[in-house]
Design a protein around this nucleic acid. Structure first.
Lengths: 195, 195, 195, 195
DNA sequence: GCATAAGCGAGACGGTACGTCGAGTCTTCGA
DNA sequence: TCGAAGACTCGACGTACCGTCTCGCTTATGC
């Protein structure tokens, strides 16, 4: 049986070289054209070193993102719920809209549909923290009376992010930065008739 | 440059065999393990015959779906908007929830992120018609005073389907059939404070 | 299970390119440095095409030799047994003595020690025919009264070729072209005391 | 450049463990499947310890043999040259005939064709002493009038051992223990017509 | 008697080649 | 001219070992 390697002996130099190479490729190359062989070559690293520490190329990418994104700005909280949600969605759109990076972003999410480990990794390290922030903000709003307290914050998060992702996924309508306004407005006021 | 083949000479027998083989594989095999070679072998068809008529395996799958799904039930219209939206989302969830098929469904959507032709095909043949139906239903609701007419139906469609897809994509929360109720309720009544 | 390929569809072009590339490498490169990847690259051929038709690089080499060597000169027959054996051994030495080719020659024999299929191939296509010729010549000599007929021709063949190969194998003594003379002389006259 | 290590500090425990592991593998495993990594693992030794003291796996094997074989019986000398040669060849055949060990034996000789250092080592420590013994015995025979003194002992040694090795190398004819009789008889009496 | 430098076990590292897989193209034959 | 069959070139896969390179950790002098 194959042993799991000894973390304490891991080469920091190699880890960084792989991160750097992956980041570079992510910005310039389409997801399918990014191969483990290319990452290894560009990083000046043996393939085995990659396979020793990561189960797939998508896992490397998640790793890179986690490191880059981790220290990003927290969920905005100006006291105005609608403005804050709008700001947050816009921030997200800014990433999805970038030509190469945005597609690669979606491609990793795509791969996660076929790879359970990756899905778990992606959720835990990229999405879960942000969604947790979102829910915190929503609960604050509930406490402040800016949001009904008979709606489930999970549901709201799904609607909020889902609305953006759906457009991004299917591109039936071109992406544009005014979208969040309409989305958030509809969500806050509801689509039902005025009561 | 390579000529496009003569549609009129196309073998209906081969087309059906390929459809059948693909459908069979879709229900039993993970997306990555479905290969054009396997489809060809299972259909008793030369690879060239596939390449002559389809640009990719995902395109075949879309083709199969389009045929299967086309005659499906139209958007429900009982007069009760909330109930109808709920019913439609539930129908959708029923597909996504199926263990192999649901994942393959998402995997095709995933692939469409890297393949523009596929994305167009998938939109045009699978999603666009359903979304058009949805919008029609929404406009009816507006006309009937069941829905505010200052909200964009595009936005509503995004929120509606996005909510479901988002859960399906990231599976942070397990999928279950009660979800549409909460989603639709929140969307209709809005999350803002009672006015 | 993997099917054996269809001989009749085999590409003659590819076969020849592989032969040529191998022959070129054999004359210039040490056996260990000849890899299937290099052969494929030099021949402008996919690796799979090699694996489809040959089980190992040594098998390719044997194939090349068989084609090159097949039409070689027959065993000499001048009527003088001693001279003929001498001539034949000298011809053999000429190959073994060549700097790169000779070593590669021994290296293939070496590999045949670890690969039964290769050993059979090498025997059948390269050695067996020559040894059969040798035995025919020896039997002629027996019929002509130039050789005792109470000695086994197999044994004589072993002594004859073995003597050359042994030197070539261990190189305890440098190889030189006068060796066959002494070898054949000792073998013909025997080493026992004059009777 | 890398310093040669200090012999006096060498671990005898490790040396023996490596010898033992190698001997075990030699008896059970095909030559190609014997790797330095396996030897190290089986011996419970770091790879570096092997590389520090031996240049190749074949060198380890030669080392093992040299130790095992060194104290072996000297060349027999009963006064009867023919019987003694026969006895010696038979002893040799006994090793070559063993199923795994015999093949590994030939495989090392094989490897020596590609590795000059190994060839020198193998000659010096395994073959040269035995061949020297053989030649001594032959010279004794010459002095005793049991062998012609116009034949070169080198040549005779080549014929003698070559005959055996040739069969072993190519296995055109299965090996059997009666072979040495015919070989030695032919060599002593010669194959030429009765004089 | 204690530092200090060696060999040691372990195993990660940069590489090279392996043998396999599937992609998409090309060729041959039969209908 | 399409279809079946399948060989072709290509490129990436994930694995196996190579030989080198750190890492602590014993030892075992020699200052």
């Amino acid at each position: 049986m194959s042993r799991q390697p000894d973390e304490s002996r891991r080469s920091e130099r190699a880890r960084q070289a792989i991160h750097a190479a992956t980041a570079e490729l992510l910005a310039s190359t389409s997801y399918d054209a990014i191969t483990i062989e290319k990452i290894a070559a560009q990083a000046g690293v043996g393939k085995q070193t990659i396979y020793r520490w990561w189960p797939s190329k998508a896992a490397i990418i998640v790793d890179v993102w986690a490191e880059v994104i981790a220290p990003r700005a927290a969920f905005p909280d100006t006291g105005d719920l609608e403005a804050d949600l709008r700001a947050q969605l816009t921030r997200m759109l800014d990433v999805l809209v970038e030509p190469v990076l945005g597609l690669n972003y979606m491609a990793v999410i795509a791969d996660s549909q076929r790879d359970e480990r990756l899905a778990a990794d992606l959720s835990a390290r990229i999405f879960a923290p942000r969604i947790a922030d979102t829910k915190d903000r929503l609960r604050l709003a509930q406490a402040a009376g800016q949001m009904r307290d008979d709606v489930d914050v999970d549901t709201v998060a799904d609607l909020l992010y889902g609305g953006i992702f759906f457009r991004s996924l299917f591109r039936l309508v071109p992406l544009d930065r005014t979208q969040p306004d309409a989305l958030v407005a509809a969500l806050i006021r509801g689509i039902g008739p005025l009561r």
